[in-house]
Simulated assay, not measured.
Amino acid sequence: MIGASGQDHPAIARGHVQDSAGAHGHDWSATQVYACGNPAMIAAVRAACEGWGVPAHDIIVEAFVPSGTSSIPLAEGSLDPLLERVGPRFSLDGMLAARAQSIRAVAQIAGKLRVGMTTAQAVEMADQHLRDMGSSNTWHPTYIRFGDDTVRTPRQGVRRQRTLQPSDIVVVDIGPVWNGYEGDFGDTFVFGDDNLHRSCAQAARDVFSAAKVAWKTGLTGRKLYDYAEAQAERGGWKLERNLAGHRVSDFPHALYGPAKLAEMDIVPSDAVWVLEIQLRHPERPVGAFYEDILVGLPGQ
């Protein structure tokens, strides 16, 4: 038990909760950690958990939103009043909680995929899993793509009766709403040992990571996608520019405009933009996808 009381008590330790928790030799590799607090506290807890070996998708951050407040922490002096408008409930903590829950959901959905499952069955399973986790609805449809369909964008559609093969590449892309906040996360998973599949999946993550670092130097949305495209080409991949990044917010962000990240000439603010990276092989029908909310806080 961790407390801040000034009275001595043998069951109460003083200090940071992560310091006390880490002092007992616990095996953290199969542990889920739930945390709630201000951003600085959460960053410290997340860093400690990662050092202990807790998987990223098992660090679950709940919204820390003071009751009765109408303030919008990131909107005052930092969000663009036109392109980055948000609703009255918006808070950084709410967005971070939705992000963490979405990352966890994608990992769990991928763990439920089975060889022989059709795309339609996979989407049905994923939607049910999101409901079971507490998602009230999805602000965009759940997209799951197998094999050749990984080079297609959501608007191009997929073959819903296509089946997952023993050697295959799979994209999982979800847009759930958690407690009134929009999550959006997508990743690529590989079944079997095809080196091209593995290289493509990793390349999407690497291009995303490089672009996120570049964003922190002050790149505009447009220049950010130019940078990502150059990074992809340097690695021998093609970037799909029709997936151009988009807004997220307290639901529904669509009330505040349809702006695309790749067409913006302002520097994107924290926690209100999704960077989408879809790559494909220049000749073969193999693609990969990775997306996440742009967050520049320590530990994110």
Rank of each mutant, 00 (worst) to 15 (best):
Q18W: 11
K223N: 04
G22N: 06
A23E: 01
A122N: 05
M117P: 13
N179F: 00
T188V: 05
S249N: 13
I174V: 10
H26K: 11
S102V: 09
G87F: 00
A30E: 14
F208N: 05
A23H: 03
N179P: 08
G218E: 03
G37P: 12
G6E: 14
D149V: 02
L92H: 08
R241G: 02
A43P: 09
G68I: 13
W178P: 09
G25M: 13
A259F: 06
F191S: 10
V172T: 05
D206M: 04
G221P: 00
Q128F: 06
V272I: 06
G257D: 15
S70T: 15
Q128G: 08
E276R: 05
F289Y: 05
K260I: 00
R14L: 12
K212D: 15
T119W: 00
M41T: 07
A204E: 06
D80I: 01
V272F: 09
G299C: 03
F208T: 02
A262M: 03
V54F: 10
G257F: 14
M125P: 12
G25E: 11
T163H: 06
F90T: 07
A259H: 04
P252D: 12
P282T: 14
A262C: 03
W237V: 03
L279W: 10
A47D: 14
C200Y: 10
G94F: 02
L164T: 15
P55R: 02
L275Q: 09
Q165M: 09
F64I: 13
L239R: 09
W139G: 15
A48H: 15
R145Q: 11
Q32F: 02
G192Q: 13
P252H: 08
A105E: 00
S70K: 13
T163N: 15
V171A: 08
P66E: 14
A43L: 05
I60D: 06
T69Y: 07
E229N: 07
T217I: 14
V213G: 10
G221K: 00
E50H: 11
D187H: 07
V123I: 13
A210G: 02
F251R: 00
R89N: 15
R46W: 05
Y225D: 01
R114V: 11
S78E: 09
A211Y: 14
P298F: 12
G186E: 02
F189R: 00
E76W: 15
W28D: 04
A259D: 07
I103A: 08
G221N: 00
V286I: 11
R89M: 12
D149Q: 06
D8M: 04
K260N: 10
A44S: 05
Q128E: 11
A201P: 04
A30K: 06
L261M: 07
M133W: 03
